[in-house]
Structure formats: structure tokens, C-alpha cells
């Protein structure tokens, strides 16, 4: 008796894990053949190293008023006329070394960026996983809330969260809490993208047979969500997180520029640009230009790397 030949399923090489995939041939090959990715990675490596090693690379601690000497204020960069060799990017009106301020500011900007991306990812992944897996009214509530949030500009929501937090805290604690307020404000406005992506992947995964097998074997719903579905929906999250890092750094800079972010005594890159901007028309250009260049380089490098990662991990573009 002859049997009709069944169509054999096409081979689907599934990636073994995030780390294995990151080191797998395709992505590494793509990295070696992408100029923008390699330059971006180099720039980021330098900036990250500078931020981490700031206390050793800086000439002074810009947060320590005792180290400042007002005689050295408003000095131009070392190579310009009237420059001082000790302050090679010049000083601001408070005699703070611009180079040292940038190192410390970069540090703060990156801390806020990474922490708010982590917060947004944790909130977004959890809510997306829950909505996609449970469905029904839970899903509808989460996604409608996300839609409402998305219909406001991110910066407006961040300003709102920021304002509420500042109103809730006693004035004396504003400055110490400024960094946490920023992380919370930026993190809580950026989770929507993660939630949407994870939700749609979860809805695909939850109907697959391996999930049914787990249900048959008495695995709890929480167990299925966390140990079965979560590892299978994390791929796209990496790309979003990378691109979001650039966004978060920019949002922090914008908030600080508007004066609701980091205080002048603890300047981030955005605060430095705001301070410099006030004196730009007095001819003190170096205080605003150098932090701006660093900010642009950072965000551009992160975005280019994110773009590359998105293409490299997209099987349709290989």
C-alpha cells in the first residue's frame, strides 16, 4: 500500500540562546562587514570607558566646590588665546573644568539611560507577557492604558511624572532624589514599546505545541510564562533596548536642559549644555559646544549600533 509522501517540515534552525546567538557566525560576520557598526562600537567603548574611569581620568572633581578656584573661571580651551594648560577644554563660570565635568556628566547620563531602559524593559516585558498570555480583560486594560500613554509625547509624560515626584518630595530632598526621579520618569514612559512587542510574540508562542505539552504536564501558568515563553520572546527586546538607550539619554538631556533634570551642582550632559547655553552670547562657546559634541556622538553611536543589530538579527534581511 503506497502512502502519499507527506510534506516534510522545512528545517527551522532555532537560535540556542541570546549569548550563543550573539556569538554565532551570522551576527559576527555582519559586524565585521559593517563599518558603521564597528565605528559605533569603538566610540561607545571609549565613552563607556571614560564614564567608568571618570574619577581617574578627570583633573578635578567638579562636584567638590572646595577644589574650585574662582580665579580660573571662564578660561578658554588650552589651545586658544588665554587658555590654561591645566584646563584643556576650558572652564565654566564657576571655574569647573569642562573636560572633568563632561566625564562626570557622561557618567550620570549613562547611569540614567541604562537604569531607565532597564526599568522600562522590566515593566514592559512583564505587562506584555501578562497581557499576551492571559488575554481578555487584563490584556485590554493594559493595552488601552498603553495606547493612552502613547498618545502623549514622551517628554510631556516624563515632565508630568517629574512634576508629580517633585511635588511629592520635600524640597530638601529634590537634589539627592533628582537622579531617581529622572530614572522613574523616563522608565515609566518608555515601557509601551516593550509591552507591545512582547505581547505580540507571546500571543504567537502561547499557542505553540510546546506550551500545550507544558500544560499537559501540569506546569502552572506562571511557570509557563516565565520559563517557557519568556526566553522565546526576548530576541526583539534586545534591539528595542539598544535603540531606547539613545532615546533615554536624549530625554534625560532634554529634561535637564529644561531645568527639571539634574541640578547644576551635579550636572549631567544636558545640564552642562543648559549652563553653557546661558553664556553662549558672552562668547564663552566652549562650555556648550564640548558637552553637545559628546552627547551627539553618544546618541548617534547607540542608534547606529541599534540599527545594525536590528538588521543583523532579522532573518529576513540576511
Amino acid at each position: 500500500m503506497a502512502t502519499p509522501t507527506p510534506a516534510s517540515a522545512p528545517p527551522r534552525p532555532a537560535p540556542a540562546g541570546l549569548i550563543a546567538r550573539a556569538l554565532s557566525g551570522d551576527v559576527a560576520w555582519s559586524f565585521r562587514h559593517s563599518w558603521s557598526a564597528r565605528i559605533s562600537a569603538l566610540v561607545l567603548l571609549i565613552l563607556f570607558a571614560a564614564a567608568i574611569l571618570a574619577p581617574w581620568l578627570a583633573n578635578q572633581n567638579p562636584y567638590d566646590i572646595g577644589e574650585l578656584s574662582l580665579f580660573d573661571s571662564e578660561l578658554p580651551p588650552a589651545w586658544a588665546e588665554g587658555g590654561d594648560a591645566r584646563y584643556w577644554l576650558g572652564t565654566d563660570t564657576l571655574a569647573r573644568d569642562v573636560y572633568s565635568s563632561i566625564l562626570y556628566g557622561l557618567r550620570l547620563s549613562l547611569i540614567v539611560g541604562f537604569a531607565s531602559v532597564a526599568l522600562a524593559a522590566v515593566v514592559g516585558i512583564s505587562l506584555g507577557l501578562l497581557g499576551g498570555f492571559v488575554g481578555g480583560i487584563v490584556d485590554a486594560a493594559i493595552m488601552r492604558f498603553a495606547d493612552v500613554l502613547l498618545s502623549f509625547p514622551t517628554i510631556l509624560v516624563a515632565l508630568l511624572v517629574n512634576g508629580i515626584m517633585r511635588g511629592a518630595l520635600p524640597p530638601a530632598q529634590h537634589q539627592q532624589a533628582a537622579i531617581w526621579v529622572l530614572i522613574l520618569a523616563i522608565g515609566l514612559t518608555n515601557w509601551v514599546q516593550y509591552a507591545r512587542t512582547v505581547r505580540s510574540s507571546t500571543m504567537v508562542e502561547r499557542n505553540k505545541e510546546y506550551v500545550q505539552a507544558a500544560r499537559i504536564n501540569g506546569v502552572s501558568r506562571a511557570g509557563i510564562m516565565v520559563s517557557h515563553i519568556l526566553p522565546n520572546v526576548l530576541g526583539p527586546v534586545l534591539v528595542i533596548a539598544t535603540i531606547n538607550l539613545g532615546m533615554a539619554v536624549l530625554t534625560e538631556a532634554t529634561l535637564s536642559f529644561l531645568g527639571v533634570g539634574m541640578p547644576a551642582t551635579q550636572p549631567s550632559l544636558g545640564t552642562l549644555i543648559r549652563i553653557g547655553n546661558e553664556y553662549l552670547f558672552s562668547g564663552i562657546w566652549w562650555v556648550v559646544i564640548f558637552p553637545s559634541v559628546v552627547l551627539v556622538a553618544l546618541v548617534l553611536a547607540v542608534n547606529l549600533l541599534g540599527d545594525w543589530l536590528r538588521d543583523a538579527l532579522n532573518p529576513k534581511l540576511r
Binding site: 517540515a9 532555532a14 540556542a16 540562546g17 505553540k208 505545541e209 510546546y210 505539552a213 517557557h228 522565546n232
Partner: peptide
């Protein structure tokens, strides 16, 4: 489907 019934990340 032997491709869908085993969790690819396990």
C-alpha cells in the same frame, strides 16, 4: 509538529 512541540530554547 516535532518542530513546535519542543521548546527551542531548552
Amino acid at each position: 509538529d516535532p518542530y513546535a512541540s519542543l521548546n527551542p530554547r531548552w
